[in-house]
């Protein structure tokens, strides 16, 4: 087995010592192998988003180890976390979080701006992905004018532009109707075929009852059960 993500006794404490202290993640240990598609399942407030953002190097745990591709990231300064996040992860959020007022293509290229890659390189990558997701004909349109499905594809394209090994999706179908959810699942399947590791936090049976899901991890009160 080829482990790509591993957590050891990860705990996150917020507002420690204050009356509003919370522990969204408690003592979580798990392993995810390369190429696996995993669903994080649990009721609202069980800590799915929190765990996902820890694994995705968005922030640091209070204690425990998080090993991404063999490297412990639990204690890294933010700018190194950011570097790893930028090179390893693609995020699909609950909201689409596109930047209104700029074009589809620009939205998609945005994550690569700070990396310093040359413009031809950016363009080539963006065009490949737009082709793959079938939104090339919309590339110069401002995103706010697109249909929900198209916007969804733009958001996915943006998550894929850095060619990530791991895709993290947080309730990706929460705001979608059945048809769009189906589209999304098809894209996920495609990505799985390409060998990407996928972690989806959701309580939507539409997703976790599909057969392309390899494994389910259930959470409650910040713990894995």
């Amino acid at each position: 087995m080829n482990t790509i993500i591993k957590t050891e006794n990860v705990t996150k404490v917020l507002n420690r010592g204050r009356p509003n202290e919370v522990r969204p993640v408690r003592d979580v240990s798990m392993e995810i192998s390369k190429g696996e598609t995993v669903v994080l399942k649990g009721p609202s407030g069980s800590g799915k988003t929190s765990l996902l953002s820890l694994v995705g190097c968005m922030n640091r745990p209070t204690s425990g180890k998080i090993i991404v591709k063999g490297k412990d990231v639990a204690k890294l300064p933010e700018r190194f976390l950011n570097l790893i996040r930028r090179n390893t992860f693609g995020f699909i959020f609950q909201q689409l979080n596109l930047i209104n007022g700029i074009s589809v293509k620009e939205n998609i290229m945005l994550p690569l701006y700070p990396t310093g890659s040359g413009f031809p390189e950016l363009k080539k990558r963006a065009e490949n992905i737009m082709d793959k997701l079938g939104i090339t004909h919309r590339k110069h349109f401002p995103v706010q004018g697109l249909s929900g499905g198209e916007q969804q594809r733009v958001a996915i394209a943006r998550a894929l532009i850095n060619n990530p090994d791991i895709i993290l999706a947080d309730e990706p179908t929460a705001h979608l109707d059945t048809k769009l959810s189906g589209d999304l699942i098809n894209i996920m399947k495609l990505l799985k075929e390409e060998g990407k590791t996928i972690v989806i936090a959701t309580h939507d049976p539409l997703i976790y009852e599909r057969d392309f899901i390899d494994r389910m991890i259930e959470m409650r009160d910040g713990k894995i059960i």
Binding site: N15, R16, R60, P61, T62, S63, A74, K75, P77, E78
Partner: peptide, 14 residues
């Protein structure tokens, strides 16, 4: 304290 993961340490880093 480089080994601490407290919010204070994060704010110092920032």
């Amino acid at each position: 304290n480089a080994n601490s993961s407290t919010e204070e340490q994060l704010s110092l880093e920032r």
